[in-house]
Design a binder for these strands. Structure first.
Lengths: 249, 249
DNA sequence: CGCGTGGTTGAACTCTGTCAAACGAGGTGG
DNA sequence: CCACCTCGTTTGACAGAGTTCAACCACGCG
């Protein structure tokens, strides 16, 4: 049985957003997967690639990004364990962005053919996966809103809230201190800011006793205030169950 | 037969991005639809609604947006004829944003039940619709990139390129002059800018002989230059056929 | 012909970026 | 075990893109 502890994040991820049946989960886990351990900074797929398999993050963090002609980078998503970062490649042949790891990671690869066959056989699974891609789009709408209409402190607070919420779903962040393998430079490239602004704003947060983010460890001191600054409302994550109850939440 | 001329944009929209079969198109058009003519500014669905049907734009423009606590607005999508703006509501119960018309419009509404039944019966249709929602996500990634890393002139040029491309797909924009029922204020709320900046930048474009956008009529004088300023590459629209050949393209 | 919506203009201001340098913790090899 | 290197962070001075505020204009419509 493949229901190894390493697959729990995926199961929790799917269960938190859909009413997927036990049977569907089982069939998903029985798909032929190739596991691989990779270093930080490993490029899983490049912009322009035509992948023949989907990536599943088992451990570690990944991110998706584009490089502009002037050399600047925009990160369009962070991915935590349990995520299927390039699930869209099942239906969009060409990658319009790249996928790489933010930390040492354990990945699993599922061939498109097998996955597509399963979506034809079991539309509970198909719906669950479609729904996952729609939630990714909802997260992108939230990012557009933050980039378009929120000042730097709100953007930074928002991404911290989002990452905490998503980690707590897969039960990797249900405590007030969490390791986030994200540099200030990467935060900047996700939020449309520079690392200098990230640094100064994080210092403001620290001085105000809201959060500390040092050496890639995030410590939350005042969750309500962080949420208020961010204007964070987890509705856009479309969870079917409430966020776990712990300190912050 | 429902294959009225009014449904051509939908057909062209689907055909331009998927290899959907004749049979699938026919079954889609045979779904029970209720047509409705509405004024400019009609609120189709509100944030927080639980729609039971999907909206199809037959004529006119629509847009999707969110209102922040401070009263500011972020537009997260523009929709042209042939679009299914809230197709995601098939799998995400709660609307995380609102949908309204930018101009007088003719809409059609398809009950979720009938649409879901069709996706179960014909997975060519299911794949085509899933793919459409994935392309919407790709457009959002492009917007995130523009908002995060492009200066005002590039953002404005980009949205103009995108709208021209999308209109030309449904053969409503394959000329160098097009009516875009979008105010400068609405452009600003989509691009994370203020209407003052939009106005000044559009004047710069006009003076430079690139485009004129006056009285909601867009006239393109120098498409290559507009595309260059925008950093516009239509790959992210994932078209299966090249953009129509006309002046600009 | 008056009102409203959308567009235009100018001046002051401010957030965030740019540039440039220094610091510090962790890892590596001599 | 220490020198050294690298990556990420921190700091300061300055600049500038875009905002804010506050008018004013112009066209269309009842």
């Amino acid at each position: 049985m493949k229901a190894h502890i390493r697959y729990r994040p995926l199961i929790r991820n799917l269960r938190s957003t859909t009413e997927i049946a036990e049977e569907g989960i089982r069939q998903l886990l029985e798909l032929p997967m190739i596991e691989q351990e990779v270093d930080k900074g490993y490029e899983v797929v490049h912009e322009g690639d035509h992948p023949t398999r989907c990536c599943l993050v088992l451990e570690g963090f990944a991110f998706r990004y584009r490089i502009l002609v002037d050399g600047s980078r925009q990160i369009v998503a962070f991915n935590v364990p349990g995520d299927l970062p390039d699930l869209q490649s099942l239906h969009l042949k060409r990658m319009d962005h790249a996928l790489a790891t933010l930390s040492p990671a354990r990945l699993a690869f599922i061939p498109h053919g097998a996955l597509r066959d399963l979506t034809r056989k079991n539309y509970g699974v198909a719906d669950a996966l479609w729904r996952r891609t729609l939630i990714d789009a909802a997260i992108l709408r939230e990012w557009v809103t933050a980039l378009g209409r929120k000042p730097a402190p709100a953007r930074i607070a928002h991404i911290l809230c989002e990452l905490m919420a998503r980690l707590s779903i897969v039960q990797l962040g249900n405590k007030s201190q969490v390791r986030l393998p994200v540099t200030q430079n990467e935060l900047a490239d996700a939020l449309g800011l520079t690392y200098v602004t990230i640094n100064r704003t994080l210092q403001d947060f620290s001085r105000a006793g809201i959060v500390d983010f040092r050496h890639q460890v995030l410590t939350i001191h005042n969750w309500p205030e962080l949420q208020r600054i961010a204007g964070f409302d987890p509705d856009y994550l479309h969870l079917t169950c409430p966020l776990p109850k712990w300190g912050p939440f």
